[in-house]
Simulated scan of single mutants.
Amino acid sequence: MTTDQLRPDPVPVPGLGPDGPDAADAGPNALPVPVPSRPAVGEGWFFLSEALRTFRLTGAVAPSGADLVNALVVPATSRPDRPISVLEVGAGTGAVTRRLVRVLRPGDRLHVVESNPRFVQRLLADPELVRRGPELGLRVSECRVQDLPEARAAEAAGRPGAGGDDPAGGGGSGCEAPGCGQAGAAAGRYDVIVSGLPFTNFEPVAVQRVLDLYLRLLVPGGELTYFAYLGTSAARLLTSRPRRGAQHRAVVRLLRQFEKEYGLGSRTAWRNVPPARAHLLRTPGGHRARAAGRIPPAGGPDEAAR
Results as ranks from 00 to 15, higher is better:
67 D>H: 06
51 A>E: 07
123 L>Y: 11
127 P>G: 02
100 L>C: 03
120 V>E: 14
122 R>T: 13
51 A>R: 02
90 G>I: 04
20 G>R: 09
134 P>H: 07
210 V>Y: 02
185 A>M: 06
287 H>P: 07
67 D>W: 05
251 V>K: 08
122 R>G: 12
215 L>A: 12
8 P>L: 00
119 F>P: 06
90 G>T: 05
258 F>L: 09
86 V>W: 11
244 R>K: 14
290 R>D: 15
184 G>P: 14
172 G>R: 13
57 L>K: 15
293 G>P: 07
140 V>K: 06
115 S>F: 10
227 F>A: 09
222 G>I: 12
294 R>A: 14
283 T>P: 00
223 E>M: 10
72 L>A: 04
255 L>C: 01
143 C>S: 15
126 D>W: 09
208 Q>A: 06
157 A>D: 01
141 S>G: 01
195 S>V: 02
140 V>D: 10
141 S>Q: 10
258 F>W: 15
190 Y>M: 11
208 Q>L: 05
135 E>T: 09
76 A>E: 11
79 R>E: 07
214 Y>H: 14
4 D>H: 08
215 L>W: 13
37 S>I: 07
285 G>L: 12
253 R>L: 11
242 P>E: 11
168 A>Y: 09
192 V>Y: 01
291 A>S: 12
41 V>D: 09
132 R>I: 08
217 L>C: 03
289 A>M: 09
40 A>T: 14
39 P>R: 14
226 Y>L: 08
207 V>S: 03
297 P>M: 03
150 E>D: 02
113 V>I: 13
40 A>N: 14
295 I>A: 01
148 L>G: 00
193 I>E: 13
172 G>V: 13
228 A>W: 12
170 G>H: 13
51 A>G: 02
221 G>Q: 08
228 A>M: 15
229 Y>S: 02
155 E>T: 01
216 R>Q: 08
124 L>H: 00
158 G>H: 01
33 V>H: 08
146 Q>C: 01
234 A>H: 11
269 A>W: 02
132 R>A: 13
213 L>E: 12
288 R>H: 12
267 R>S: 10
4 D>P: 00
200 T>Q: 02
170 G>T: 14
71 A>M: 15
109 R>M: 11
240 S>F: 14
232 T>A: 04
273 V>D: 14
27 G>L: 03
141 S>P: 02
272 N>S: 03
88 E>V: 00
137 G>F: 09
263 G>K: 08
159 R>P: 04
184 G>K: 11
100 L>M: 06
246 A>H: 13
161 G>S: 10
105 R>T: 03
256 R>T: 10
212 D>I: 00
48 L>H: 08
71 A>Y: 04
155 E>N: 03
295 I>D: 08
